[in-house]
Design a protein around this nucleic acid. Structure first.
Length: 422
RNA sequence: GGCCCCAUCGUCCAGCGGCUAGGACACCACCCUUUCAAGGUGGGGACACGGGUUCGAUUCCCGUUGGGGCUACCA
């Protein structure tokens, strides 16, 4: 029987590092299940007796996990709720002579033996007994200290595997001692490396977006999962794109984890998100946008499809689609306004020529539009770009977009001409 | 300072004694083109250093250097 828990602290946000740890825990459980084992994934909130998790803080964690699709089987349970048991366990250790009262607090007696465990990601790790000293398990106010509360809780919940951040390595010997004192076998420990910012330091607020919530509006959950899973883990070969989380579950193995910290590269996340966006396809992307105004447009699907190849984030798709659908006012970007300024008469002429020619076109297809536009350019001794680019800018506010004929078809004749003349 | 962990392109990974050290992101060049954030082709770019072990080390061992984490009656 496998019982795994993910134990975030209620800090008001779910850190991407935490989310990745949750993902590894979850993948481990799902993988075990597929192998026919009885495996349970438990969520435990690591709040304290002084700082109980508020509903809002709990919700942030729940929302983040729900967004990523990481469902749990038990919980959430709260560390702070185990106070009575923590105290009873501590008293028992005192009675057994394994702990003693020190200035009102309860201090655990360390026997200075060497501690070694076979870490699931690092292999053998050992600490020398002489470096460990007696430590507090219950404060003078009878509230438990973290290292004691976790062990008491994990014993209570019969946890078999603990996969957590690297930063807990030095807590592990203390906890192993506690398991022994409580007469229980320690679980399997696996310490997953941290996520660092570009400066090589632990990813924190000053690195920018670090909470899962910061990514929700811009990235697809499946892309986030794919990206997070591949930071510090690999299936052992060069494959990087996992469009189906089931393939991730099948391939996942704890010993495929990297031992060194990884640097979060948002550029790569963006690329990966673009791949997932295209894999989802226009219908699902449009549905996922949950924009009633956009969805109500008869050509919404065509617009999204036109815009998808060059989009990286959900925000990219939404912004471009709404502009093309006439829902948002045109925003002319830097390069576009430079283009206009360089030769405004030429710019206006291009638009005028295109509009006049297009007006007479009944067969509104990309082939015909291209033919007509090229002919207009040719007839006026202009290069195709001299009429295409002005149209593109007038319609999108950008020098970059899908091919102009595709753009025009997606927008529809009436809307396109109206926007051109405006 | 002490303890612990780690070390392949700028970044994310592959490699698990013998490879021209591979892929991806990013970057650069060229091609295509409706002068692009699309597509195509190509390019630069890494085994931190020093000792061993071995016929042979990126790979195994030791050391150095570098980086990170922990060092609370925080979690």
């Amino acid at each position: 029987m496998i019982r795994v828990r993910f134990a975030p602290s209620p800090t008001g946000s779910l850190h991407v590092g935490g989310a990745r740890t949750a993902l590894f825990n979850w993948l481990f459980v799902q993988h075990a299940r597929r192998a026919g084992q009885d495996a349970t994934f438990i969520l435990r909130i690591e709040d304290t007796d002084k700082q109980r998790s508020t509903d809002e803080f709990t919700k942030v964690i729940l929302d983040g996990m729900a967004w990523l699709g990481l469902g749990f089987d038990e919980g959430p349970t709260f560390q702070g709720a185990g106070l009575a048991r923590h105290q009873a366990d501590a008293d028992r250790l005192v009675a057994l002579g394994k702990a003693y009262i020190d200035e009102g607090a309860v201090r655990f007696r360390v026997n200075h033996e060497d501690i070694t465990w076979d870490d699931a990601v690092h292999g053998p790790i050992s600490f020398q007994g002489k470096d460990l000293e007696d430590f507090i398990i219950l404060r003078a106010d009878r509230t438990p200290v973290y290292n004691f509360a976790v062990v008491s809780d994990d014993v209570e919940m019969a946890i078999t595997h603990v996969f957590r951040g690297d930063d807990h390595i030095s807590n592990t010997p203390k906890q192993i001692l506690l398991y022994r004192a409580l007469g229980k076998e320690a679980p399997v420990f696996g310490h997953v490396p941290m996520i660092h910012g570009a400066d090589g330091k632990k990813l924190s607020k000053r690195h920018g977006a670090t909470a899962v919530g910061d990514y929700q509006g811009r990235f697809l959950p499946e892309a986030m999962i794919n990206f997070l899973a591949l930071m510090g883990w690999s299936p052992g070969h060069d494959r990087e794109l996992f469009f189906d989380v089931n393939e991730l579950i099948d391939a996942f193995r704890m010993d495929g984890l990297q031992k060194k910290p990884a640097v979060f590269d948002e550029k790569k996340l963006e690329w990966m998100n673009g791949e997932h966006l295209r894999h989802r396809g226009p219908e699902k992307v449009l549905a996922g946008l949950a924009d009633p105004q956009l969805a109500a447009l008869p050509n919404a699907l065509a617009i999204v499809a036109a815009v998808l190849p060059r989009s990286k984030t959900i925000a990219d798709v939404l912004r471009q689609a709404r502009t093309r659908g006439g829902l948002d006012a045109l925003v002319v970007d830097q390069k576009a306004s430079e283009y206009i300024k360089k030769d405004e008469p030429g710019y206006r002429k291009g638009i005028q020529l295109a509009a006049d020619a297009l007006k007479a076109l009944d067969d509104w297809t990309d082939e015909m539009i291209e033919t007509v536009l090229r002919r207009v350019a040719d007839d006026n001794q202009l290069k195709p770009g001299q009429v295409m680019q002005p149209v593109r800018i007038a319609l999108t506010g950008s020098t970059v977009s899908e091919p102009v004929n595709i753009l025009l078809v997606a927008m529809g004749k009436d809307a396109a001409l109206k926007a051109l003349v405006a």
